[in-house]
């Protein structure tokens, strides 16, 4: 641990971003990274409940799930996967440029990440409106032609719960990116102090990972079944 090596009479130059209760920026950075990781653990468990429900019902109704997943647009889902992975790359590069102190490229890649995130959300809106049009929104108006509509409804229910929560995280992520862009433009980040960029990057990558699992579980699960 850093602070146990540090002595009480520290001689660190006081950085404007250093909060009063920390000894130095290193300790502050360590705390914020750790905090974000623990937050991500809670996110794992949060989504975990839904993944658990998915596993149980898929093991109960494998056929129904496969058939229901045919109603999802695999092309749009695939494009979104590519978009999101690319946004992870641009986010990683943004963190890189904040580390080396290239402010122009930092802003550029943050903006790119934001645009890709918005693209993802846009495509999601298109997908949702298709589902709405097809009457596949669970609830009283749910319409489904295939066999076992009730069990198919569970699939769509899970689809909307999981992708909806994921999209909510994307929206929050887009908000965070906007703040980062603003403060990067104001020149707040430097190689000494850029932990906001770093921890936001962790969050963004986590949201990407959730999608990495959602894509095969929801879109590819029935791809091989002739529909």
């Amino acid at each position: 641990m850093a602070q146990s090596e540090a002595t009480a009479q520290h001689s660190v130059v006081h950085h404007p971003a250093l909060a009063h209760h920390f000894e130095n920026l290193e300790q502050q950075r360590e705390a914020s990274t750790l905090g974000m990781w623990i937050f991500l653990i809670t996110e794992i468990m949060f989504f975990g409940g839904l993944f658990l429900a998915y596993s149980i019902y898929r093991s109960w109704y494998p056929q129904v799930f496969a058939e229901a997943s045919h109603h999802l647009d695999i092309v749009l889902g695939g494009i979104n996967t590519v978009v999101l992975i690319t946004s992870s790359l641009t986010m990683a590069l943004a963190v890189y440029y904040s580390q080396v102190g290239n402010q122009r490229k930092l802003i550029l890649f943050l903006v790119l990440t934001l645009l890709l995130g918005l693209t993802f959300l846009g495509i999601k809106v298109v997908e949702y409106s298709h589902k709405f049009h097809d009457g596949l929104i669970p609830g009283v108006h749910f319409r489904y032609d295939g066999p076992n509509p009730q069990q198919a409804q569970i699939f769509f229910w899970l689809y909307f719960a999981m992708t909806g929560l994921h999209a909510l995280h994307m929206i929050i992520g887009a908000g965070i990116l906007s703040f980062l862009i603003y403060f990067a433009w104001r020149g707040r980040y430097s190689p000494e102090y850029h932990s906001p960029v770093e921890v936001s990057g962790l969050y963004w990558h986590f949201v990407d990972i959730v999608w990495i699992f959602l894509f095969p579980l929801l879109y590819l699960v029935g791809f091989h079944v002739k529909g």
Binding site: S88, A92, G201, H205, D208, I212, F213, P216, L217, V221
Partner: peptide
């Protein structure tokens, strides 16, 4: 089918965690 899909997803997630994160 599901085994392959999940294995690939786990590999992808691991890559993101190890390098991007």
């Amino acid at each position: 089918n599901i085994t392959v899909a999940l294995t690939v997803a786990v590999i992808k997630a691991t890559l993101v965690v190890l390098y991007f994160m």
